[in-house]
């Protein structure tokens, strides 16, 4: 029969025989793309140093992953964009003025210790970029808290340093923050566009929100974590952040400053290290918010987003264990 010859060419595999078009690489590279506005703003405010630091982070992250995998005779996975993303996020989380070895050490910790030793992408417990950053902050507390003053031009190498808004708030309170920024409207505006000291990628709230909108639109992240995270921070800031008693705080200052937007949309939502069930993600977001504000208001550090996300990373497997999605037909079962 004519088909006899054909028979051996047919491919046999298990259903389904058609697949959606999403791939890990597509998702990761889109996230990278969504951070582009924030990166551009960082170069605008902090000059070529910003590009240098971020580039060095990306380069060392990608190279580290490649060398590790090649030297162990494994398939290199740098094409999926996750190492690039780790480097990029680490870079955006560093101050502009760090010496060259800080990005390299940070990338090594992020890629090797946090990701590859755990079995690679998909198995890490902690967000690699954040562990890299935390490691650096604890190791080099002084170098990691030198903040350059934003200059608002692409070329400048202004060496003037200043404190971050949250740093000022912690040290001198709201009054001093007002002295530095003028009135509240000026403060909000500076925080929105990113004209303030801080880690490279965290300053420009508008640029970050543009990227976040892309991710939300594409469905790569959902509202659950960012919303519950931001809402908790807002409520906590309003309730406990005021100088004149409960419910007098200014939630906007806390929402717009620090690494909150960057953390809530781009790092707390890291698939691998957050709970995978949506209900659990809300718990996760609320936890992040609570710890962030606890540290900001009472703790030893001016900013708590990084530690909050890392601490909730610890709890994510526990949350995943405790929160199960509702199974089809489960109501009747319980009544029995």
């Amino acid at each position: 029969m004519a088909t006899e010859a054909k028979a051996h060419e047919l491919i046999v595999s298990v259903s389904p025989h058609v697949r959606g078009k999403e791939t890990v690489g597509r998702i990761m590279w889109t996230v990278n793309l969504s951070l582009l506005p924030a990166f551009i703003m960082s170069v605008y405010y902090f000059g070529p140093l910003a590009a240098y630091v971020t580039g060095l982070c990306i380069l060392s992250a990608v190279l580290t992953e490649h060398i590790y995998q090649v030297s162990l005779n494994k398939k290199t996975t740098i094409g999926d964009g996750s190492a690039f993303l780790t480097g990029l996020l680490l870079g955006l989380n560093l101050p502009a003025s760090v010496p060259f070895y800080i990005p390299i050490v940070g990338s090594f910790i992020a890629i090797v210790i946090t990701k590859l030793l755990f079995g690679g992408l998909g198995y890490n417990i902690f967000n690699p970029a954040l562990i890299g950053r935390a490691f650096l902050l604890i190791s080099f507390p002084r170098l990691m808290t030198i903040w350059l003053k934003p200059t608002a031009q692409f070329v400048s190498l202004d060496a003037k340093t200043t404190a971050t808004p949250l740093g000022i708030l912690k040290e001198g309170g709201l009054d001093q923050l007002m002295q530095v920024f003028g009135d509240k409207a000026d403060l909000y505006m500076s925080l929105l566009v990113g004209n303030r000291a801080g880690s490279l990628g965290e300053t420009s709230v508008i640029a970050l929100l543009i990227g976040a909108a892309l991710l939300l639109y594409r469905g790569y992240i959902t509202w659950h974590i960012p919303f519950s995270f931001l809402a908790t921070v807002g409520v906590m800031a309003w309730a406990l952040g005021g100088d004149s008693g409960f419910f007098t705080g200014d939630p906007l200052i806390h929402l717009l400053s620090g690494g909150l937007i960057l953390g809530a949309f781009f790092m707390a939502t890291d698939y691998v290290t957050c709970p995978s069930i949506r209900k659990g993600q809300i718990v996760f977001g609320i936890g992040c918010g609570l710890i962030t504000m606890l540290i900001r208001l009472k703790g030893g550090f001016p900013e708590g987003v990084m530690f909050a996300i890392l601490l909730m990373n610890c709890f994510a497997p526990l949350i995943d264990r405790g929160v199960k999605s509702k199974m089809f037909g489960a109501i009747k079962e319980q009544k029995k």
Partner: peptide, 19 residues
């Protein structure tokens, strides 16, 4: 790897210091 996990958790717990 358990030690390394413990180390990373300890790193995260430093966030509580000074609370």
């Amino acid at each position: 790897i358990s030690f390394i996990i413990a180390g990373l958790i300890a790193l995260a717990f430093t966030g509580f210091s000074g609370l």
